[in-house]
Structure formats: C-alpha cells, structure tokens
C-alpha cells in the first residue's frame, strides 16, 4: 500500500522523466553536432579530445532527456563496446583516440558508472526497454559491490574500485562529494532493491549539511577518516568537479536553502573556482554553462529571474555545455517559471 502511494507520489510530483522531452530539441541538436561523433563517442574537447565514462554517461542521460533514441543507441553502442569491458562489468574510465589500445586506464570512476546506470534506467523507463533496465541494474549491482563502503556507521560512495580506501591512503577513506549523482540513488535503490543506495544519499546530504554549517562549500576531495576535511595532496578548492554539486541537488529536488547557502556565498561575486578555506575566488568561470548554475540556485531559492542570454544554449566546450543542458532540463522540469 505504501509502495503504491509512493509510486503515485512520484507520478504526481513529476519526478519520473516524463513523456515530454526535458532537454529542448534544438539545444540538444547543437550539443550532439558538436560533441557526439557518428560512432557514438562523446568528446571532451578541451581535454585532448578524449572520452570517458563520465562524458559517455552524460551523453546517454541527455539523449534520454531529449527523447533521442537513435543517438542514445549510438552512444550506448560505443560505451558498451569500448568501455564496459572490465571484469566486474563496470566502465573503464579513460578512452584516448590517439592511444592503442584506446583504453588507457582500466580503472573505473564511480560517477561515470552512476551516470551510465542512471541513463540506462531512464531509457528503460522512457522507451519501455527492459534490456536497458537490466543493464542499469547490472551496473548498479557491480558498483555497489566495489564502491559502497561502510565507515564510521555511514555508507560511503568510494570514487573508484581502487585507490581511495583506508588501506590505500593514510587519510583514507577519501571521497569526492561531486560523485554523488543524487538523482540516481532512488532509481538504483528501486531497480536493485538495495537500500544502501539510499544510505549513500543520506551520507552525502549529511556531509553537505555539515559543511554548510561550517559555511564551507564542498572541496573536490574530502577525507572522511574522522571529521571531514580536505584530502591530502589535493587542492582544497571548490573546483571544476565540485561545481556540479548544487546542480545535482537541484536536479534531485534536494536543493534546500540552507544546504545551498555556501555555494551561493562562494559565487556571490560570480562563478569561480573558490578556495574553501579563505573563500576567495581562485579562477573565474565565465562560461554560460557555469553561470547558469549560479543563476539556477538564485531562481530556485528566491525566484530571481534567469538572465535571458543563459536561457538559450550555445555550445562552447564539452563540460560547461553539458552542465548547461542539464541545468536547462532541470529548470524546465522543476522550475518552469524560471524560464
């Protein structure tokens, strides 16, 4: 009974990627032409033209949100054949067109795997393709096996199958808060029946809330060995990875005002990479794909209108363009008044 009610709530609140496209077709066409090759590779143009499990995951998710079955099929054909080759069924994270063999790092990256699973689940639902749902379930199960770790009474998402645990580092476990793709957790929990995905969501939210109390935007890499603190050997910055966090929160409907406060504060003078200790900007992020993140927070919390120039999409580089489309789809779905 309760499950039925929950399912109805999902439908009424519009949480399911619904029948209509959440990414505008024209914007998606521009993105696809610039970043998706005919073989289905999503190209990180500023990063030597390589691809990775993250870019493929974003490409799949956007294709699903844009209701573009053909491009989804193309990207998945590439992803499956070229990256989903690990013994554990997860994706190798790095693919270089100039290298032979192309996979230059067989390690996985948990956010890439999460995005691919989330996108497959999206496709399975939207187009009634149980094979895609099954593939999503398979990845989720494998990822749970290698990347979910209990530590100090909480369930953590490790950044990869290897390299970040207590055994690997003196300040381990080390996590990356931007790997919490919040929208994926309820979906994977439902697909697999594994409630640890909800525990991971809870640990991520608690982590962000603790940081918010300390008025600190999330740094990229955090040691959670004891009191969370920036991990050794990494810059203590709210940087390129971490800027996705408020977007992920908003996309999942988890963007509480208090939780988003440190991010608003960090970007009070414009979007930038920010030193989490001093709060000072280190490097400005002027691209529209970054500015719309800040504008989305403002509109979601206070109804501040989104500047008109950010509402239309012009592809720039792969990463900000991806964030731009994800933000537009989020606004269209959850905050139509902002557009």
């Amino acid at each position: 009974m309760r499950r039925v009610f929950a399912a109805m709530a999902v439908v009424f609140l519009g949480l399911a990627p619904g029948a209509r496209a959440a990414v505008p077709a024209d914007a998606w066409a521009l993105y696809r032409q610039k970043f998706v090759t005919s073989e289905g590779r999503v190209v990180d143009d500023l990063n030597g033209g390589i691809s990775h499990s993250e870019s493929q995951g974003y490409g799949l998710l956007l294709a699903c949100l844009a209701d573009d079955r053909a491009t989804f099929a193309r990207i998945f054909a590439f992803t499956r054949t070229e990256l989903l080759i690990r013994d554990d069924g997860l994706a190798a994270w790095r693919w270089d067109p100039k290298a032979s063999p192309h996979v230059t790092d067989i390690n996985n990256a948990s956010d890439g795997d999460l995005l691919i699973a989330d996108a497959l689940a999206c496709a399975g639902r939207r187009w009634a393709m149980p094979a895609h749902s099954a593939a999503a379930r398979q990845i989720a199960t494998s990822l749970a096996k290698v990347a979910l770790r209990q530590h100090a009474g909480q369930t953590w998402l490790m950044p990869g199958a290897a390299g970040f645990s207590e055994k690997d580092r003196t300040d381990g476990p080390v996590v990356n808060p931007s790997y919490w793709v919040f929208e994926a957790f309820p979906i994977l929990a439902k697909l697999t029946g594994d409630q640890r995905w909800m525990q991971v969501q809870a640990s991520g939210l608690k982590l962000l809330d603790d940081l918010a109390k300390r008025r600190m935007p999330a740094p990229e890499w955090l040691s959670v060995k004891a009191e969370p603190k920036p991990a050794e050997g990494f810059p203590a910055q709210f940087g390129y990875n971490a800027i996705r966090i408020p977007l992920y929160l908003l996309r999942a409907g988890l963007g509480d005002k208090a939780r988003l406060a440190p991010f608003r504060q960090a970007w009070a003078a414009g979007t930038a990479v920010v030193d989490v200790v001093s709060g000072k900007p280190v490097e400005p992020l002027p691209d529209a794909g970054y500015r719309i993140l800040s504008a989305s927070i403002a509109c979601a919390i206070e109804g501040t209108p989104i500047p008109a120039e950010l509402k239309t999409f012009q592809p720039t580089a792969y990463y900000p363009s991806t964030l731009h489309l994800l933000a537009l789809s989020m606004l269209g779905e959850r905050y139509p008044q902002c557009l």
Binding site: I85, R86, D87, A92, V103
Partner: peptide, 18 residues
C-alpha cells in the same frame, strides 16, 4: 560483430573474465 569488438577490447585490457 559488436561482441567480437568488445572481446578484443577486453582482451587488450587483460580483462580475462570478461
């Protein structure tokens, strides 16, 4: 054909179980 290509990739990456 796709399975063959995937197999080649997995083999190049020494993912023998795959």
């Amino acid at each position: 054909a796709e399975a063959r290509q995937r197999l080649v990739n997995a083999s190049d990456a020494r993912q023998w179980e795959q």
